[in-house]
């Protein structure tokens, strides 16, 4: 019987700070990113703190330029903060990247056109030096997990946009990470495909006990997927509000018509309209 995410969050919040840091998969503390620009110093992120517990699904939502992608890149050690600290699994983000302890899904599928779907999923396994038969087995399993077992031998140009993005999710899963960082992975897809992939993702998250940090522009998507929604605002990029999303862990698309869903959506919308008003 899975715990409700709400109870879990409360659990974390009642523990002592020192223990909190250990329990958190990701902890971001007083992080700022700024760089010189033509109009003086540009604050991409300013004083951002965030703690993500195991099995949470966090959505980062906000206007363009609010630094949601930057925050994700900091956690992934693809960028460095100007000030503040970032811990992943208790260590530095650099160590976490060295341990390949997260899977990153980009806005675009970023598949290699000369590799088949299966070979694309095998790419990270080649990098970590896995034996060929183990690579094939794990990549096949990862493709099956995203429902693309039949498409293993197809090249990217033979796949639809939605299928390409599923291959890229399978590629991220093939390393068997506990943490998944996703940067607007479904932004370029049509509504129906997006619904399908959202459903798929929430199942993967629940069944595999994943921790997910997910950047999105879509309020329904954020509410449907998340245990917590982090609303951000721009200039300077910062967290404006964190909204708990106490929906059950097992979710189907019908949940979007429940009063709870609509109430949370309204909260997010209100938080965002404040953020946009500040622009």
């Amino acid at each position: 019987m899975p715990d409700s995410p709400h109870a879990e969050t409360l659990d974390i919040e009642t523990t002592q700070p020192r223990e909190q840091a250990r329990a958190a998969v990701v902890s971001v503390e007083n992080v700022a990113v700024s760089y010189p620009s033509r109009e003086g110093v540009f604050h991409a992120l300013s004083d951002v703190s965030l703690r993500v517990a195991r099995r949470e699904f966090i959505s980062l939502i906000g206007p363009s330029g609010c630094g949601k992608t930057t925050l994700l890149r900091l956690i992934a050690d693809l960028a460095q903060p100007s000030t503040g600290t970032i811990r992943v699994n208790g260590g530095t983000s650099r160590q976490a990247r060295g341990d390949r302890s997260y899977g990153y899904v980009f806005q675009t599928p970023a598949l290699q056109p000369w590799r088949t779907a299966l070979a694309n999923v095998m790419l990270p396994l080649e990098i970590i030096g896995l034996a060929a038969n183990e690579r094939r087995a794990r990549a096949t399993a990862a493709l099956m997990a995203v429902g693309l077992g039949d498409a293993a031998s197809r090249y990217p140009w033979q796949l639809s946009g939605g299928m390409q993005q599923r291959v890229s999710i399978a590629r991220a899963l093939s390393l068997r990470p506990e943490l998944l960082l996703m940067d607007e992975p479904f932004g370029a897809l049509d509504e129906i495909t997006r619904d399908k992939l959202n459903l798929h993702l929430t199942d993967l998250w629940r069944d595999r006990d994943l921790t997910v940090i997910f950047v999105t522009h879509s309020i329904p998507e954020a509410v449907f997927l998340s245990t917590r929604i982090v609303a951000m605002s721009a200039k300077p990029g910062r967290i404006s509000r964190v909204i708990d999303c106490g929906l059950p862990r097992r979710r189907t698309l019908d949940i979007r018509n429940t009063p709870e869903f609509l109430a949370i959506s309204k909260q997010v919308r209100d938080a965002l309209s404040d953020a946009y008003a500040n622009e």
Binding site: A76, L78, R97, G98, R100, Y102, G103, Y104, F106, Q107, T108, A110, Q112, L123, P124, I127, I128, L175
Partner: peptide, 14 residues
């Protein structure tokens, strides 16, 4: 190669 392709390999610590 595009930046995203290079970033991808960075996430694998290649």
């Amino acid at each position: 190669p595009q930046t995203v392709q290079l970033d991808l390999l960075r996430t694998y610590n290649a």
